[in-house]
Every structure is written in structure tokens, then in C-alpha cells.
Design a protein around this nucleic acid. Structure first.
Lengths: 232, 232
DNA sequence: CGGGATATTGATTGATTTCAATGTGAGTGG
DNA sequence: CCACTCACATTGAAATCAATCAATATCCCG
């Protein structure tokens, strides 16, 4: 398999804008969301630009403000597995090691909030609650990874696509109209399929009246139950 | 796919044996290994017996003393994905939630050391170092999961089996002679393949003189480089 | 020396990939 | 406003890798 991914020129802008950030962990002094809200510098990343690369020293933790980010690993020959998409509110870069375990790229033009890992580490050593939150958030990422392994190892194409759609729908206001920030190639690399199989499977689901495809980036869930049936 | 897994009767024995446990985190008062060594009760679990089930309240953290444990998820129809094998020294059950995110079973007769999650949580809230260690260990599990997603999503059968063998060999004293604690079915469910494909692939690797198969549970790595070539 | 579980091997099928062509849509410049 | 282009997506036909179905073979363990 070959694929060439054009790389836009890097354009970073870091400023001191501050704004409210909500999160399930509250926004106190000793919560990650709080730290991001208080001390997080804003950073803009253009579509397809790398946020960090595998093996690079992990200098920051990141929170998505707007846009979407993919974290992934690649084989030498270019085969790529996307482990997760990070949407607004999500925190990523939690690998805890000194070095990133995988790469992160902007799926669309993004605004991120960044916080120095070193300062968070320093705080965490003194503050058990913060350290516990780092743990819990990482554990949550691990839980999702385990779920995704089940999908990649044991589900067929229809089940994979259905799972994906349900997961995306769950993150949407209405839970019906999905606005996809990512391309078919991204979806394919997330689901461990080819772009053609993703496309075909979406068509099948449309013919079955489970979904509607008004445009390639917009999907309506017509029959949640038929998707759930496939969610095994 | 159908599969019946006979379930041996549960036999637990908890005692107060204490012994030394080494680990990369040291064995002080404030390290997990230390806590296990000081306060960990021993527990014996027979082959194929469940240690804990998905959705069960997470009461303990576990460390393997001897034997091997598999953690996995299953679909309603029985399709199973093993996320990891835990060998002596490994700590598992770190999901951090109140409830287990997946199930754990003994691959072979096992001795485990268990520590109450609640007491560790309590300690962690006061001790940043311990909380940080919990984080780091979970992050390590997450890193491995990401690696495994790449295998499940993007590698072919030969690459999967080669990766598995290299990983097992790395955990062996000599790095040459592998003594497998798990069945072909376990390997298949770990690699997202069928038992037949695992078997065939091992035979292919043997014919290629990359490995030797003196018995089904014993494998010699003859040519590490040919396996590494497949490790992409 | 059975006997049941586990593993290997063979033949065939089938889901997904690969290769190839066509379609669609957004942005650009005339 | 319309052609043109380029990236992206869909659709079709053929090939392929792994799954399935089926038959031994081997290994424990009583």
C-alpha cells in the first residue's frame, strides 16, 4: 500500500487568550481542565499539520478547543492505524512517558490549548487529586483502546462502520445529524479497513435505510436501532 | 462463530504469605510493588477460572506472581478479543474506574497477589508519587494497547504471529526458547485470527527456518531477523 | 491403552482488498 | 457565471488472504 500525504507548511500561533473550559472533572485549581483554562496557551494548527510526532519528547498536554485531532501509529511502509479522534473538550498527549508513544495531527484546522507537561507533573507530585485525575483520564483512554481492539480484531466491516457512526452520533448534540470532521481515509485508518470498503458499507447502510448521506461529510442516523443491532 | 469454554469450578485461597517483589518502580512504601510485597495477600486461581468479570466492581489490583492471566472483552455471540497477557511481575486491573472495563481469567494455574483498590486509592490521594506511578503504569498499558491496535488493524497474519513471537521471546530469559503458557485459541484471540490461521502461520515460519516447534507449547526462535523483518 | 481436548493440515468459500474507472464537489480564474 | 481542475468519494470487477468446513493427528491424563 502506498499513500502520499501532502504536508501543509507549519503555521503555529501561540497566544495568551484565556477562556472558560468545562469538563467532567470540574475546573478548580487542581483539575486538568482548570489548569488548561487558567494557564493554557492557545495554539492553532492547520489541517494535516503534525501536533507532535512519535518519539518526540512530550513537552505538553493538549486540550482540543475546536477542530479535531487524530492520534496514530504508522508502519514503515505507510500503513496507518488511527487510535483515536479527539474532539472539542478532549485532552490528549497523556502518555506519561518522556516521549510520545504515537503521533498527533490536526484532522481539520484546530485550536488547541496546551499546558506544559513538566509543570503538571510537578503539581501532580504534590497534589494527589491531580495525579489521580491524570490516572483516570489515561485509564479512560485505555478503556476506549480496549474497546477499539475488540472492533479491530473481531468485528466485520458493517459492524465497524456502525460502531463508528454510533460513537460519532453520541458526541453530537442531536445524536442524529453527524458532521464528520475527517475524510474517508481517516475513517478507514481508524476502522482498519480500506477507503473503498468504508464507502461501500456506508452505501449498504443507506440502502437499508439505516442512514442518509446528504453529502460525504454529513450523515443522518435514520434508524439507530439497526445500527445498534450491528454493534454486537 | 461458536465456542464453548468449559469453566472449572472456582477455587480461591487467600493467605498472608509475604515475599519479595522486585519491579522497575522500586519497592518502597510508596510504590505499587512495595505495597503488593508488604500488604498483598496471595490468591491462587486455577486455569480458565475468572479473576474478575467485566462490569464487576473493581475491588482489587492484581500482580501476577506465577502463571499467566488474560484480559479480554467478548461480543454477545462469543467472539473474544484478548487485549493482553499478564506474566509474572505484571500488574493488572488498573482501569481506575469503580467497575472493571473487561474480564480477566487465568490462562494457567496462577498465583496472584492482590491489594485493595480502595486503600491504594486512599494512599494515592495523599501520595503524589504513588498516584504518578499508577498513572505511568496505566499509560504503559495504554501504549501497548495502541501498539496492539496497529497490529490488529493493519498487519497480516504472518506479521501478527511474528510480532507475538518476538514479544514473547523478549520476555524470556534467553530470548530464544519460548514456553507458551497459552493455547492456540488464546493466541488466535489475541491476534485477531482463527486458531487454524495461527497454526498454519507457525508451520510456514517453521518451514522457512525462522522458528522450530518441538512441541505445541514450546517454540525456538531460530532466526530473529526474519521475524523482525515481518515486524514491519 | 483408551479418550477427550488440542493442534495441524486440507479443500473450499467468502469478505475485504486491490486495481481500475467514474462521479462529485469545492475552489479558481477567465 | 461557467469551465476547469484537483482532491476526494463512489462504484465495479477481479484477486487474495484468512475464515470456514472437514478430516486427521498429537498430546495429555486417567
Amino acid at each position: 500500500m502506498e499513500r502520499v500525504m501532502e504536508q501543509a507548511t507549519l503555521k503555529l500561533r501561540v497566544n495568551d487568550d484565556r477562556g472558560p473550559v468545562e469538563g467532567i472533572y470540574g475546573a478548580g485549581e487542581h483539575s486538568l481542565a482548570g489548569i488548561f483554562a487558567m494557564q493554557g496557551a492557545l495554539m492553532r494548527v492547520e489541517r494535516n499539520v503534525e501536533v507532535y510526532g512519535e518519539e518526540e519528547p512530550a513537552e505538553y498536554l493538549y486540550q482540543v478547543v475546536s477542530g479535531a485531532v487524530r492520534t496514530y501509529k504508522v508502519l514503515q511502509d505507510g500503513r496507518r492505524q488511527i487510535g483515536a479522534f479527539h474532539l472539542p473538550g478532549d485532552i490528549f498527549g497523556l502518555e506519561a512517558d518522556e516521549v510520545h508513544a504515537f503521533s498527533a495531527e490536526a484532522v481539520s484546522d484546530c485550536t488547541l490549548r496546551i499546558a506544559r507537561r513538566a509543570s503538571i507533573m510537578a503539581l501532580a507530585t504534590r497534589d494527589g487529586d491531580l495525579a489521580t485525575e491524570l490516572w483516570q483520564r489515561t485509564a479512560e483512554a485505555f478503556r476506549r483502546a480496549q474497546e477499539h481492539m475488540l472492533l479491530l480484531g473481531r468485528k466485520n466491516a458493517e459492524e465497524r462502520v456502525a460502531s463508528f457512526l454510533l460513537r460519532m452520533a453520541a458526541r453530537t448534540a442531536t445524536g442524529q445529524a453527524i458532521e464528520l470532521p475527517m475524510s474517508r481515509q481517516d475513517i478507514a485508518d481508524y476502522l482498519g479497513l480500506t477507503i473503498e470498503t468504508v464507502s461501500r458499507t456506508l452505501t449498504i447502510l443507506e440502502n437499508r435505510a439505516a442512514i442518509e448521506l446528504p453529502s460525504s461529510r454529513r450523515i443522518f442516523v435514520r434508524s439507530r436501532s439497526s445500527l445498534q443491532q450491528l454493534n454486537a
